[in-house]
Simulated assay, not measured.
Amino acid sequence: MSTTNTAPDPEALVALLDVIDNYPGAAALRARSIELLAAPPGAVIVDVGCGAGRAVAEMAEQGWDGLGIDLDEHMLTIARRRWPHCRFEKADAAELPLADHSVQGYRAEKVFHDIADPTAALTEAHRVLTPGGRIVLIGQDWDGFFIDSDHPELTRTIVHARADAVAAPRAARRYRTLLLDHRFTDVRVEVHTGVFTDGTLLPMLTGIAHAAAAVGAITSEEAGEWIGDQTRRGQADRGFVAIPLFLAHAARP
């Protein structure tokens, strides 16, 4: 999850992602996605958009041969340092370094919103999966951030401005249709909601407010007022950010 409309500081982003990944809800969602892959021991599983590689390492604990794919060299460097026993490669979701029908599972978390046209990525997923292989997609709808605030209209403007900066902000609500359109079967969707009431997401909230001001959606004064409100809420244990996450899973016939 990016924290701003501009490129975030890599170390700050990794630190924020580490905090989020360690939340009980995030850990449970990762475990659920791994469970839904339903692969036998020794299966080859590709994790597209693997980031710092935590899910790849957890899949290795299942006895699978996990392969993490990402385009971000910095993330791959961290992943290789943290999980030296796992495999990581730089590649695009639309051009995987894998033979036809060579993997038993395909997982992608918070990736498809960054792909303007997911058709190529899902075509590639269909190509590399073996018949009967499972695909699991996880992502948030960028129009669907729920943030308690003394300024609800301003909050709505900030959230939509952030969504407008994403390549495919509503990709997650389209998972079911996309999978059906690409000939996957037994398509099902679950909704899991992350709730944050402390100051964990304040860097993200600050980033999206500044980004909204940068594109002219709000003024810098409005951004400062909104950030101040969120800061005070976090300090007083009155913060509330809810982010629904859509988990779609299906089989390759």
Rank of each mutant, 00 (worst) to 15 (best):
D92F: 06
V111T: 13
A165C: 07
L202D: 07
P41E: 01
V46H: 04
L13T: 00
D198W: 02
A57V: 03
M1S: 15
H101D: 10
P152Q: 13
P203Y: 09
L67M: 09
D229S: 06
P169V: 03
P203A: 12
D72G: 12
A214C: 04
E11R: 12
I243R: 03
H101F: 05
A163Y: 08
D229G: 14
F246T: 08
P40G: 02
A248T: 08
R32A: 01
V241E: 11
W142Q: 10
L96T: 03
A99L: 11
D92H: 09
A94F: 01
V195D: 02
T219S: 15
E73N: 14
G51R: 03
I115V: 13
R30S: 05
R156G: 13
E153C: 00
V48K: 05
R174A: 14
H101M: 08
H182Q: 01
R81P: 00
W142F: 14
T219R: 10
E222R: 11
D186Y: 02
L201Q: 09
A108H: 05
A213N: 07
A250S: 01
L205G: 04
A161S: 15
R188S: 08
G132R: 09
P152I: 14
A52E: 14
I20C: 00
G234I: 05
A251F: 08
H210K: 13
S220M: 10
S149Q: 11
A12G: 00
R80F: 06
H74V: 11
A213P: 01
A39S: 02
P152G: 09
D65A: 10
D237N: 15
I218F: 12
A99G: 07
A168M: 04
T155W: 09
F145Q: 12
T231P: 00
A223Y: 14
R54K: 08
T197W: 08
A55H: 01
H151D: 14
L98C: 02
D70Q: 04
Y23D: 00
E95R: 09
I138R: 03
L36F: 02
D181L: 02
A60W: 05
R127G: 05
L154H: 11
N5M: 15
L36P: 00
A161D: 01
R127I: 07
L29I: 03
L96Y: 12
L98M: 13
P152R: 13
D70Y: 06
D229H: 12
T6W: 15
A28P: 01
L17K: 00
